Amino acid sequence: MKIGNSPEGSVAPAKAEQRPAARKPEATGTTEGARPAASAPAPSTQVAISSAAKLAASASTSTEDGSFDTAKVQRIAQAITEGKFTINAQAIADKLVSNAQELLDSRANKH
């Protein structure tokens, strides 16, 4: 069962899914039926990319032009289809621990 799905189907949509009520047109001095020029909405928040995110993006294993090894992707897809693809959970766990340690070390050096 997915989170948020109710068997009865009577769950109200989340706030992000609800549509705001229609706004009344503002008096702009335009003629009947003419629409005023649309203006961009004011930004609701600002986004800043951290130095760690910039470092991670620059250390990406893909090539500079954003391409990837299509042949490798096809080999992996074929292995998955044939049921021959194996996952080395130990290697994944080791890499996660290593990345977490690097992140903690970089934060400790900043303070």
Rank of each mutant, 00 (worst) to 15 (best):
G66H: 04
L55V: 04
S50I: 05
S10H: 09
A21C: 00
K54C: 04
A52G: 08
Q18S: 07
T31P: 02
T61S: 13
A59K: 09
G9C: 05
V47F: 14
P43F: 08
S62A: 09
N5L: 09
A34Y: 05
G66V: 01
Q46I: 02
S10R: 15
S6G: 11
A12T: 03
S60G: 10
R23N: 06
Q46A: 14
A16T: 13
A12F: 02
A37I: 04
S62L: 06
K54H: 14
P20I: 04
A21F: 02
E26W: 01
A12D: 02
A34T: 12
V11R: 13
P13Y: 06
A56Q: 04
A42W: 08
L55P: 00
S60P: 03
A16Q: 13
A53K: 12
A38D: 01
P13L: 10
A40E: 02
E26V: 05
A57K: 15
K15H: 08
A21V: 09
A22G: 14
S60T: 11
P25M: 05
G29C: 05
T45F: 14
A16D: 01
S58E: 11
T28E: 01
A37P: 03
P36T: 01
A53Y: 12
P43H: 09
I49H: 05
L55E: 14
P41W: 07
P20A: 10
E8T: 15
R19N: 10
E17Y: 03
S44R: 12
P43S: 10
P25C: 03
S62K: 11
E26Q: 12
G33S: 01
G33I: 07
T28P: 00
E8H: 07
Q46Y: 11
A48N: 12
A52M: 03
D65E: 08
L55K: 10
S51W: 02
V47W: 07
N5P: 01
A48I: 13
P13G: 03
T63S: 06
A16L: 10
S67V: 01
A40I: 03
A37R: 12
K24W: 00
G66I: 02
I49K: 06
A52R: 13
P25T: 03
S58V: 05
P41C: 09
S39R: 09
G66W: 02
E32S: 06
E8Q: 14
K54V: 08
S60V: 02
K54M: 12
S51D: 15
P20N: 10
P36L: 01
S39K: 09
S6W: 05
E26A: 08
T63I: 03
A12S: 07
A21M: 12
P43T: 04
V11M: 12
S6K: 03
P7Q: 07
T63K: 08
K54A: 06
K15C: 07
A12W: 02
